[in-house]
Simulated assay, not measured.
Amino acid sequence: MKALIETIVTPLVDHPEDIVVTEAEEDSKVVYHLTVNQNDVGKVIGKNGRIAKAIRTVVYAAKTESNNRIYLDIM
């Protein structure tokens, strides 16, 4: 899932070397924290959050075998 997130975000940013995806597993959910360069945050979020919503939709649709819910935080 980390590779999928990085693959989606890399073409959107000017500083792809600053992309960091961390995974935190909690009770019944898995949270992915996406961190990008401060100058690229607006590009990843997009106008009115459209790009962020699209990224989340793809990530949620690519659910793994486990029944855990998946969340994506963009920082």
Score class of each variant (00 low, 15 high):
Thr7Gln: 08
Leu4Ser: 03
Tyr71Trp: 03
Met75Ile: 05
Val30Cys: 03
Ala61Leu: 08
Arg69Phe: 08
Pro16Asn: 06
Ser28His: 12
Glu25Ala: 15
Val21Arg: 09
Asp18Glu: 13
Ala62Gly: 00
Thr7Cys: 08
Ile51Lys: 08
Thr64Gln: 14
Ala3Tyr: 07
Thr57Tyr: 05
Arg56Asn: 01
Asn67Lys: 15
Lys2Cys: 01
Glu17Gly: 09
Glu17Trp: 04
Gly46Tyr: 09
Glu23Trp: 11
Glu26Tyr: 12
Val9Phe: 11
Val36Thr: 00
Ala62Arg: 09
Ile70Met: 13
Thr10Ser: 12
Val36Cys: 02
Val36Asn: 00
Leu4His: 10
Gly46Leu: 02
Pro16Arg: 06
Pro16Tyr: 06
Val41Trp: 05
Asn37Tyr: 09
Asn48Met: 06
Thr35Tyr: 02
Leu72Val: 10
Asp40Trp: 14
Val21Asp: 06
Ser66Asp: 15
Asp73Phe: 05
Lys43Arg: 15
Thr57His: 09
Ile70Ser: 02
Asp14Ile: 04
Asp14Met: 14
Ile8Ala: 07
Pro11Lys: 12
Leu34Tyr: 05
His33Asn: 14
Asn48Tyr: 03
Lys43Gly: 04
Val41His: 10
Val30Arg: 15
Thr35Gly: 00
Tyr71Leu: 07
Asn37Val: 08
Asn48Gln: 09
Pro16Trp: 01
Val13His: 12
Thr57Ala: 13
Ala52His: 00
Val20Arg: 14
Ile8Lys: 15
Gly42Tyr: 14
Val21Ala: 14
Leu4Pro: 06
Leu72His: 07
Ile70Phe: 09
Thr35His: 03
Val58Ala: 11
Tyr32Pro: 01
Thr10Pro: 06
Glu65Thr: 13
Val44Asp: 07
His15Ala: 12
Gly49Pro: 02
Lys2Ser: 00
Lys63Phe: 07
Gly46Arg: 06
Asp27Phe: 14
Tyr60Ala: 11
Asn37His: 15
Lys43Ile: 04
Ala62Trp: 10
Asn48Val: 00
Lys63Thr: 09
Gly49Thr: 06
Glu17His: 12
Ala52Gln: 01
Ile45Val: 13
Asn48Leu: 01
Val9Pro: 07
Leu4Trp: 03
Ala3Gly: 05
Ala52Asp: 02
Arg69Trp: 04
Ala3Trp: 02
Gln38Lys: 11
Glu25Asn: 11
Asp14Ala: 15
Ala54Lys: 03
Lys53Val: 00
Ile19Asp: 11
Met75Ser: 08
Val36Arg: 00
Leu12Thr: 04
Gly49Met: 06
Ile70Lys: 09
Val30Asn: 03
Val44Asn: 13
Ala52Glu: 02
Val31Ser: 03
His33Cys: 04
Ile19His: 11
Val21Thr: 11
Tyr60Ser: 08
Ile74His: 00
Glu17Tyr: 08
Val30Trp: 01
Ile19Leu: 10
Ala3Thr: 12
Leu34Cys: 05
Ile51Ala: 03
Tyr71Phe: 09
Val20Glu: 10
His33Lys: 12
Val59Thr: 07
Lys2Gly: 13
Gln38Ser: 06
Gly46Thr: 02
Ala62Asn: 15
Ile5Ser: 06
Val9Glu: 02
Glu25Trp: 10
Ala52Arg: 03
Asn68Arg: 15
Val31Cys: 02
Asn39Lys: 13
Val58Pro: 03
His15Val: 05
Ala62Lys: 14
Lys63Leu: 08
